[in-house]
Design a protein around this nucleic acid. Structure first.
Lengths: 149, 149
DNA sequence: TCGAATATCTCGCTCAGCGAGATAATACGG
DNA sequence: CCGTATTATCTCGCTGAGCGAGATATTCGA
């Protein structure tokens, strides 16, 4: 193996976390008659709403790596299930602003709530320096994985 | 919003990392004529090989959340592309042991290598206590997300 | 030795997502 | 203002990943 320092355990741990989160998300999806992409869309929508930003059809599709046709059918699915509403943009009426239904937000929280609670609990048992180390590591990994190519 | 302590920034950061890793994995997949599931399968296979365990068709399918039919077609795909070989189990000849081709391992490293390098670099700039904090946080999140329901 | 259990495969089907192109609204040079 | 380029979304037809049902082959237990 290329590297076998004590760092590798943490690297594999991070990968394991992403795998487990993905599987849990898939289980939640099929349990609620949704597809993995629908759950990812809901996450993006809740995140945008939390940041106070409008989410358009195009931005959502780009965030999920879908083309426009796939985005349309995703929105058809979500709208048909009553999770979102399509609203024409006010200034630019070509755009479709996607609004999340309150019950879909509740559904999302029933899924993420316990995980978030556990995370907050773990972080509250850290002192400031430890929290900063965790934050720095995650921030670094996000930048490394977001990068181009 | 339900909670707005300083912990939430880290929670969202963790989610952002998993999203970015997923997108990067999808880009890598399409860039190599593969599907996201194929990449996930390769990860599982390399992980098992690293742990010195044999990976059978059934175990692989279970790890990915596929049924037996989907697993068979996944293996057909991977075998057709030359990434894996099917080998009948020696003691139990119902089983199919999946062996990864060396070139597929190289392909995997070309994708994960830079990310792993960045992670190791970040971790080497930490002292022992900070590393332990990161390890503990990820371990806790893995346990929380792995749990049943 | 025989039936139950287990591992994988085959067959037919559904539907997520793609490519190509239509439609509609906006931006902008002349 | 007009015509053209650009942008945002949608429609249509299609491919193929993954599912359910059931077939096949191997092993285990009474």
């Amino acid at each position: 193996m290329r590297n076998q320092g004590p760092e590798m355990e943490i690297v594999h741990l991070l990968r394991a976390v992403t795998v487990e989160l993905g599987l849990r998300s898939a289980r939640f999806a099929s349990h609620n008659g949704m597809h993995p992409t629908d759950v990812r869309a809901l996450i993006e929508l809740m995140d945008a709403s939390r940041a106070g930003e409008e989410m358009t059809a195009g931005r959502l599709g780009a965030a999920l790596g879908l083309n426009s046709a796939g985005t349309t059918s995703l929105l058809d699915r979500l709208e048909g299930a009553g999770h979102v509403r399509r609203v024409r943009g006010r200034q630019d009426r070509r755009k479709v602003v996607v609004e999340v239904d309150e019950r879909a937000v509740e559904l999302g929280w029933s899924f993420f709530g316990p995980l978030i609670g556990k995370a907050v609990e773990l972080l509250q048992n850290c002192d400031e320096r430890e929290r900063e180390a965790i934050r720095g590591f995650l921030e670094g990994m996000r930048e490394a994985s977001a990068g181009g190519e």
